[in-house]
Each structure stands twice: as structure tokens, then as C-alpha cells.
């Protein structure tokens, strides 16, 4: 997506689609509409939930998240709808 290096610090608000792999955070906002939005909510992506961006697929997309004790895969385009407050930048993830 954006080639520019964006520096993200702990405490920042950032879209889940742009934070580096290994980032942990708390969901601040989910902006999906209609069925897609409801599905994200149903899967536990609600404001206040802790998420950990575990890895990305070998081809760069989709992403794998850990939340509420399980693994969920979503695309970057879906991650784009989710804003998190970063709590940790270097939890264990594989590159």
C-alpha cells in the first residue's frame, strides 16, 4: 500500500492494516458497514478487544490475528476497517 515509512509508537492510534507484524493493541474502532461489519463484530473484533497481529501469509496477505484466545485470518482490506491503540510493538510474531 503506502510505501512511505510510517513510524508507529506505543500509544498511537493506527489502522490494523499498517502496523508491523508483532504489534499488540486494543481495538479502538471498527468501521465496517452491513454484513461485513457485523461479521467482524461477531468474530470478536469489538472495541476494547485485545488483538495481536501474529503474521502475514507468505504472499503478504491475508493477516493472522490472535484475539480472544483464538486465531483469525482477515485480509488487509478488512484490517483497514479496524483502528487499534498500540500497546506493544515487539510481541513475538514471525516476520
Amino acid at each position: 500500500m503506502n510505501e512511505e515509512k510510517i513510524i508507529i509508537k506505543v500509544g498511537d492510534l493506527a489502522k490494523l492494516s499498517i502496523v508491523p507484524i508483532g504489534t499488540s493493541g486494543v481495538i479502538h474502532l471498527v468501521s465496517g458497514q452491513g454484513r461485513l461489519g457485523r461479521r467482524l463484530l461477531d468474530m470478536g473484533l469489538t472495541p476494547g478487544a485485545e488483538v495481536f497481529l501474529r503474521k502475514q501469509a507468505p504472499l503478504g496477505d491475508p493477516l493472522e490475528l490472535t484475539l480472544r484466545g483464538y486465531e483469525l485470518s482477515i485480509r488487509k482490506s478488512e484490517a483497514d476497517l479496524i483502528v487499534i491503540r498500540v500497546t506493544d510493538l515487539d510481541a513475538k510474531g514471525d516476520k
Binding site: 461485513l36 461479521r39 467482524l40 468474530m43 491475508p62 493472522e64 483464538y70 486465531e71 483469525l72 485470518s73 482477515i74 485480509r75 482490506s77 478488512e78
Partner: peptide, 11 residues
């Protein structure tokens, strides 16, 4: 539009 991909990855 490309259908969404929201899938649980089982243990």
C-alpha cells in the same frame, strides 16, 4: 467486489 475472507484458523 472480491468477497471478504474472514476465517478462523483452527489449532
Amino acid at each position: 467486489k472480491v468477497p471478504p475472507f474472514i476465517m478462523e484458523l483452527p489449532t
